[in-house]
Amino acid sequence: MERPHPSLYQLSTTATTRINGWDAVSAAIGVSQTVYPAARPNAVVLARPDYFPESLAATRLLHPFHAPLLYTESQALEEEVKRELVRLSPGGNGLPGQVIVVGAVHAQILHDIDELGFTSWHLIGHDLWDTVDRIAELDVGVDPRDVLLVSAHPLAGGVVAGGYAAHKGSPILFATERGLSPSATAYLRRHPRSRVFVICPEAYLPRTLTSDVRLLGSKVEGWIGGGDPYEVAGAFAKFRHSKSGVGWGRRERSGAAVTLVPTENWPFGVAAAALSSVGKQTPLLLTKRESLPGQTEDFLNRLRPRLEIGGFPQTHGFLVGSLDVISYPVQMRMHQALTRAD
């Protein structure tokens, strides 16, 4: 496939802003520089882009701790990550450390953070699920009974829960085709009467899930499902629970901003959760690399506001990833959907 030369295509349009990034590390830095271009965050969350449950669970720390999420995937801290940490210079006020390191990393990573003059707070458990459980248990000032439950499969669309978790601080729990994960079971045992919101296509999780949650003393208040992850993402962007207020509630003609992330590259979507925590507070939608799914395009078409004569479009969309990650034709479809006149 011929790669488009960057000079032939604009990265942004009047209705779309592309945050460039060709891999997980660069995409996360791009999001960080977009969300915190000048102001200092209070912390930085540092995770690995190959541990989906840990990284996604950590998104609940972004808004309460005023932090972006960065990645490291080497035995030593990448030079570009070092530069971004220095640029951000997180304050660490009221926290055990300025850089919140999630999960198992090489000791050199912690040493490099110290060498830069920052303190680290290492959130790690006995194994992956224990780490996820510890993140879910952290007190971030929200009702711990409102929880999001997603599939542990990284391509099942659960990444969109990260945007809302970053926005509200909601804990994220996980399940597989065999049932609740160990951390989800432990959490629900400690927090009976939780309100559980499942965000996943029905095909990815067992039919017994609702009854399994009930046996632990909680209730599935809503299952935001669908035939595929793209339908789920749109449904969750529209969802709002009347009793608890959980959900984005982005209805037709709301003119709300949104962020488009690639399904195949889940670390991009997890890092993009920072766009949901500050600024325009955007829900996440999913796309394929070469084509905009019909479910996503339909949601975008319904989102744009009706305009009076002489009005201007208010809806705006972010895309996270380079032209090799989300193609230029997909960006044009998004632009057209957000600007097309009725």
Rank of each mutant, 00 (worst) to 15 (best):
D228W: 03
L85E: 02
A175W: 09
E264N: 01
L8G: 08
V102F: 02
L149N: 08
S242G: 10
A341Q: 11
Y204N: 13
S242M: 13
A39F: 06
L284N: 06
K82G: 04
S12R: 15
T59I: 11
Y164D: 05
A47C: 15
D23M: 01
A104P: 03
F52W: 13
P283F: 05
G103V: 09
T208E: 08
F118H: 04
A237P: 15
G141H: 06
V35G: 01
L56C: 09
R87Q: 02
S170T: 06
R48E: 10
I109D: 02
F299Q: 05
Q75K: 08
D127Q: 14
G269S: 08
G169R: 04
F174T: 13
R193S: 14
A274V: 08
L149P: 06
P201I: 01
L285V: 15
E297Y: 03
S291L: 04
F174L: 12
H5F: 12
S12D: 15
Q281W: 04
D143N: 14
G117M: 00
I309Y: 03
G141D: 05
A274L: 07
L209E: 05
I109Q: 02
Y51S: 15
L116S: 00
K280P: 10
R134L: 13
G163R: 05
H122F: 13
E264P: 00
P6D: 08
P267V: 01
V258F: 08
S12F: 14
R289A: 02
I224H: 04
S244V: 12
G169M: 05
G162W: 02
V45S: 08
P283L: 07
L260K: 03
R195I: 09
V320N: 07
S32W: 01
